[in-house]
């Protein structure tokens, strides 16, 4: 898998946006958002490895995490090229501090029980899939190329997480209670997925990516229909949404994720692994 990625990097399709200096700051920030979401959510999902409630589920969760790590390599790899300061995907993943991370707060929240993990995954997948589908038609051929690979995996993620949300919502009293509690706990982090700022406007103007706020309607429809089948209530509007990941203002959790993830690279600078 990595072999293919390497080949693609050494022989990339033509893409004028990649060397567009005026666009670079916004393009870089946007690519970090894509890559950091995948990296941090992948990290969280990988924490389940060896601890899931059934062997089949353990294997399925690891597949999701592996897909997300693969996406990270592609997005952050391209971010490094756009930035053009000699940083590759690993340098971006392992040598930036929390302030430079651009992932959604939703992705860094602790796993909780399987209900919370799966609900977080579903809320994310529903947006991720819409985003990637749009990106397969991006004006940037490199972005479109990555999206074309990632969307197949994301569509399976959504199929799986929505299916499990329905099953657990409808299952027993306890599973229903846990799923509804997960929705309530995560709902304040939903609005952040559709926050649209100057970076997004620049990407939309170049027709590289959609404005996240434009994905909201379709996302709402997906979530509503899945929740209806799952007999879960959609919470009302949130008084105060938790936001800030886009700008590097995170929860306390991200610092610990990075302390763990970056430990070897930080403790032994310059070593080759």
């Amino acid at each position: 898998m990595n072999k293919t990625t390497e080949q693609d990097v050494s022989n990339p399709v033509e893409d004028a946006f990649v060397a567009d200096a005026a666009l670079a700051p916004a393009f870089f920030a946007w690519l970090c958002r894509m890559g950091d979401n995948a990296l941090i959510l992948g990290h969280r999902v990988s924490e389940w490895c060896g601890h899931a409630p059934a062997l089949e589920e353990d294997i399925a969760m690891a597949n999701t995490a592996l897909d997300l790590i693969g996406h990270t390599q592609m997005w952050l790899g391209l971010a490094g090229e756009v930035e053009d300061k000699g940083r590759d995907a690993d340098a971006l993943a392992y040598l930036r501090d929390a302030l430079q991370f651009r992932n959604l707060l939703l992705c860094e929240l602790p796993n909780g029980d399987m209900g919370l993990t799966l609900m977080r995954q579903f809320l994310f997948d529903a947006r991720h899939h819409l985003m990637l589908e749009w990106l397969t038609r991006s004006a940037s051929p490199r972005v479109a190329e990555i999206a074309a690979k990632a969307v197949k995996e994301a569509s399976y993620h959504l199929e799986r997480s929505s299916d499990l949300v329905v099953r657990l919502g409808d299952g027993t009293e306890e599973s229903h209670r846990r799923m509804q509690a997960a929705v309530e706990q995560l709902w304040p982090y939903v609005d952040e997925m559709f926050v649209t700022d100057a970076v997004d406007d620049a990407m939309a103007a170049a027709e590289i990516a959609p404005r996240p706020c434009d994905l909201r309607k379709e996302w709402d429809e997906t979530v509503r229909s899945v929740f209806a089948e799952a007999t879960l209530d959609v919470p009302g509007a949130v008084g105060f949404a938790q936001t800030g990941g886009n700008l590097g203002r995170h929860t306390e959790h991200l610092g610990y994720i990075l302390a763990e993830m970056q430990f070897l690279q930080r403790a032994y600078p310059g070593a080759s692994w």
Binding site: L55, E56, I59, A60, N63, Y156, R160, D163, R167
Partner: peptide, 18 residues
């Protein structure tokens, strides 16, 4: 092991087509 046929298909995809 799976609770029903649809999940068995999902599990089979994850377990046996890695």
């Amino acid at each position: 092991h799976a609770p029903d046929a649809e999940m068995a298909i999902h599990h089979a995809r994850d377990v046996y087509t890695r």
